[in-house]
Simulated assay, not measured.
Amino acid sequence: MKKLGILVALLSVGAIIIFSNKIYYPSLPIDSITQKEAIRKINTSSNDLVELSKDHNATWYITAISTMGIQKVDADIQQLMENEGWVFLEKEGSGLFFEKNEERTIITTEMWTKQYVLIQVPAPIKQ
């Protein structure tokens, strides 16, 4: 009976660690931030697109899926890019194509969970 009590206690501690650190979420394609930090950022922000990470290759954003679905995400990305002077050309799969001064770029989206989408913006776009 004592062994069963120890087993239950260990499982309880393990479950608490997993849920408090958001380990049950899929891994992120970004090394500089944890799942827990990503969820905290999106939950504490009033913005639709929340910056997660920025390096010399890309800026990563996260957004929550609304009742409007991926169309709202696409509209938010288009607004972000238009603010930087880019013109939306087309969407193909998970890529949104933009053009500015005869230069083209692709913004990619990735479903992270059923509730969240990750957005990768190439580095020359956002400074």
Rank of each mutant, 00 (worst) to 15 (best):
G95R: 09
I106D: 02
K91I: 07
S12C: 14
D55Y: 04
M81K: 06
L28A: 02
Y25W: 07
E90S: 12
W60K: 04
I23T: 12
I70H: 08
V50G: 00
S20V: 14
N101G: 03
S27A: 14
W60Y: 11
L89F: 04
Q115K: 15
I33N: 11
L89H: 01
A9N: 06
V8F: 15
Q127I: 10
E37T: 06
P122E: 01
I125T: 10
G93N: 11
V13M: 11
G85K: 09
G14I: 04
G85A: 02
N101A: 06
L52D: 02
Q71D: 14
G5Q: 14
W60S: 02
F97L: 10
G69T: 05
P122D: 01
K54F: 02
E110C: 04
I42L: 08
V117C: 09
I23R: 11
K3C: 06
L11R: 04
I42W: 06
I6F: 07
N57L: 14
E99D: 11
K114A: 10
T105R: 00
Q120I: 02
E92Q: 14
E84T: 07
K41G: 02
R104M: 11
N57S: 12
T34Q: 04
I70G: 00
Q78V: 15
A9C: 11
N21T: 15
S32G: 14
I17F: 10
I107D: 00
A123E: 12
L118S: 07
K36L: 07
I6K: 01
E99L: 04
D55H: 10
K72V: 09
L49E: 01
L80H: 05
A64T: 08
D55F: 08
E102W: 08
I30S: 00
I42D: 11
V13S: 14
E99A: 09
F19I: 05
L80F: 13
